[in-house]
């Protein structure tokens, strides 16, 4: 079963690796950007799955870390610090520290409180971004691509794409190790029966906080990549709908599977760009209103699609 998942991971990674070639062959350079977006959201969704799927904690503020990672890149760039060797570690570190602070407060509660508190903190950071006039306020700020050493040049779309792919592969690998370790078992035990786990001798809060920090830091890395992709960092990355979208990706793909969120990110980005085109073809002018269709689709997914896309790929596989 776990072997199955690994195979699916590899299949996906190999397919992703073929995208630059395909884009070149089809003469559609736009595809490379689109799929780089898929990869970055996949990293973010995988990180969210660690706390949402394995920890059972519905965090509705995960986009905050995407934003923090982006701001780390943008702010350093604005101060003429363009090196990726500085920007990426700072992005990971700062989002990890932010996750520590947010987790410290929100993990003391549970259930509905946790959902609302994470949402509120993300909104706080969103407004903070808007109020930072020095860093572009509402509009955000420009950030050229991070500089690494000589042969690596992120301005090269293909190189950037493969960097994102490598980070995704690494996240999946580390994530798998994590959830199958003793730590991962304890984290899932807390999801299943918190009270029992505590009486067995596990300080649940510490485990959850650690998972929250790891997830936040990883999402910060995705945020740094996202700012690089857009060559821009702005508060809109932290908008609460973005947090909602990350949750959508995780559920769409399959909660608590790590592979699922990758599929979910792929499905989401493709839907986002092609659903509107399809609707536009149906009725002129309707394409921009694709969310009228997408919204009810999510309700249907919530009602019927328990296992997500991963479940569809392997029907009848119970866990």
């Amino acid at each position: 079963m776990i072997g199955d998942r690994r195979r699916l991971d590899w299949t996906l990674l190999v397919l992703f690796a073929g995208v630059p070639g395909a884009a070149l062959a089809l003469d559609e350079p736009y595809l490379l950007d689109l799929f780089a977006r898929v990869l970055i959201f996949a990293i973010a969704a995988v990180s969210l799955d660690l706390i949402l799927g394995y920890g059972g904690l519905v965090s509705f503020g995960h986009a905050a870390f995407l934003g923090i990672g982006g701001y780390a890149v943008g702010m350093l760039y604005q101060h003429d610090l363009g090196s990726g060797f500085l920007q990426f570690p700072v992005a990971v570190l700062v989002s990890g520290v932010a996750a520590l602070a947010i987790g410290w407060v929100s993990l003391r509660t549970g259930g509905l409180y946790f959902i609302m508190i994470t949402l509120a903190f993300a909104q706080m950071l969103y407004y903070l971004g808007i109020s930072l006039k020095v860093y572009g306020g509402d509009d955000g700020m420009r950030a050229r691509r991070s500089e690494f050493f000589a042969p690596i040049d992120l301005n090269d779309q293909t190189q950037f794409y493969y960097l994102a792919l490598a980070v995704l592969a690494l996240s999946l690998w580390l994530g798998r190790r994590l959830v199958n370790s003793r730590f991962g078992l304890a984290l899932q035990g807390a999801r299943s029966n918190e009270r029992r786990l505590r009486v067995l001798g596990v300080p649940v809060f510490r485990y959850r906080l650690t998972a929250f920090v790891i997830a936040g830091a990883l999402c910060g890395l995705a945020g740094a990549l996202f700012a690089n992709l857009n060559e821009y960092a702005s508060p809109s990355t932290m908008h609460w709908t973005r947090s909602g979208e990350l949750i959508v990706m995780v559920i769409l793909g399959g909660v608590g599977t790590l592979t699922g969120p990758v599929l979910g990110a792929l499905a989401f980005v493709l839907l986002e760009s092609y659903l509107s085109e399809a609707l536009e073809a149906l009725a002129s002018g309707f394409g921009q209103h694709w969310q009228v269709v997408f919204g009810p689709l999510l309700v249907a997914v919530a009602l019927f699609a328990r296992g997500g896309l991963v479940g569809l790929l392997r029907p009848g596989r119970g866990e």
């Binding site: 909602g244 909660v255 969310q291 997408f294 919204g295 309700v299 009602l303």
Partner: peptide, 26 residues
């Protein structure tokens, strides 16, 4: 959704928001 988990509730009502906002725009 009352007897479903919070996660499904969040997803469904998030979908409703997208629908309402877009419907109003329409």
């Amino acid at each position: 959704f009352y007897d479903r988990g919070h996660l499904e509730q969040v997803l469904a009502t998030f979908g409703l928001i997208l629908f309402f906002n877009e419907a109003v725009r329409l």
